[in-house]
């Protein structure tokens, strides 16, 4: 049941430095066969054996979806995160054997769109790289507005502006350039769909303005992967499997459940897809809900938790797992 996805054994065939914060990794099938094609916007879950810790982190596929010889991902180093990106940056070398999941797409293109308007912030550019390759082959209309800190940290800016000079628009924060959203959204032809991927603030800003301007909800698509936050350790009782587990400071509840040998469903591991939704049987304490899956009333009900990102502080927590 876990993942709901098949896994693929791969070999790391290239690691390249994109800039001071980002490295790109290339995976090929270890058995020499072809990888599945995928749709632009899909991610893969990369499994990492980091000492005693087993990490599963989702990364958007950025390579050409039609290219079955290799997948590439880009990883931004997060020096204050829980360690997955640091492991990728510091420990993964060409020739390493790794396991990744089949592609899963939680940020697909709406192929009915007459035009695809893409808004990216920072490392949020990666799903768009695959989508642009797909749309270019299909001869579909798109426009990219990409905001990054400065030219030195503008991942793939050169490639994009060279290949798509008329449809790529770059904005550098350091040069006080910013997307004129009002103007941009106001000037779109009927049938345009908006896609936004980047920091939470950017996603909220675009969704909010689009809603204010009367864009239909169905025409605004976004993807935000939350990294699970660290927090105080806590104890959980898993009722179905009759186990009591400890969730460590830098461990997510989902990871602790998996480490105890209990099979739990998941897809995005970032609080977005709803797959790991778990029933709470009893608790005495306070939930720290960090997902954007549960509705507000569900969050206050004390009956549901998304173990991939959310935590708990208090005396007892009993889950139906």
């Amino acid at each position: 049941m876990s993942a709901g996805t098949n896994k693929i054994a791969v070999t790391v065939t290239d690691v390249s430095v994109v800039n001071a914060l980002v490295k790109r990794f290339r995976f090929e099938r270890s058995d020499g066969g072809l990888l599945p094609t995928f749709s632009g916007g899909a991610h893969t879950v990369v499994e990492m054996q980091d000492g005693d810790t087993h990490r599963l982190n989702p990364y958007s596929l950025m390579s050409d979806p039609m290219d079955q010889t290799a997948y590439t991902i880009s990883v931004r180093r997060d020096d204050t995160g829980r360690g997955g990106s640091l492991f990728m940056h510091n420990s993964v070398k060409p020739g390493d054997q790794m396991t990744i999941s089949y592609p899963v797409n939680l940020f697909p293109l709406d192929l009915r769109a007459r035009k695809h308007l893409m808004i990216a912030g920072g490392i949020g550019i990666t799903p768009f790289l695959a989508q642009i390759k797909q749309l270019s082959v299909m001869g579909e209309r798109f426009e990219l507005h990409y905001s990054c800190r400065n030219p030195a940290l503008g991942s793939y800016v050169d490639e994009l502006t060279e290949q798509h000079p008329n449809t790529t628009h770059i904005y550098y924060d350091d040069q006080n350039q910013s997307i004129d959203l009002e103007q941009l959204l106001g000037g779109q032809p009927l049938g345009t769909h908006i896609y936004v991927c980047g920091p939470k603030g950017m996603i909220d800003w675009v969704r909010g303005r689009a809603a204010d301007l009367g864009w239909p909800r169905e025409a605004v698509h976004y993807e935000e992967f939350l990294a699970p936050r660290s927090g105080k350790p806590f104890e959980v009782k898993l009722a179905m499997s009759n186990k009591v587990i400890q969730v460590g400071e830098h461990q997510s509840l989902l990871e602790a459940i998996e480490a105890a040998g209990v099979d739990a469903p998941y897809l995005c591991r970032g609080g977005a897809c709803g797959q790991c939704e778990t029933d709470v049987i009893g608790y005495d304490g306070k939930f720290l809900h960090y997902d954007h899956w549960l509705e507000d009333d569900q969050k206050t009900s004390g009956k549901k938790i998304m173990p991939c990102v959310s935590r708990f502080e208090g005396k007892t927590l009993v889950l139906d797992r």
Binding site: A3, G4, T5, N6, P36, F38, Y102, P103, V104, L267, Q275
Partner: peptide, 9 residues
Amino acid sequence: FLLNVQQGM
């Protein structure tokens, strides 16, 4: 269930 049928499964 169907929304979560994944590639290869």
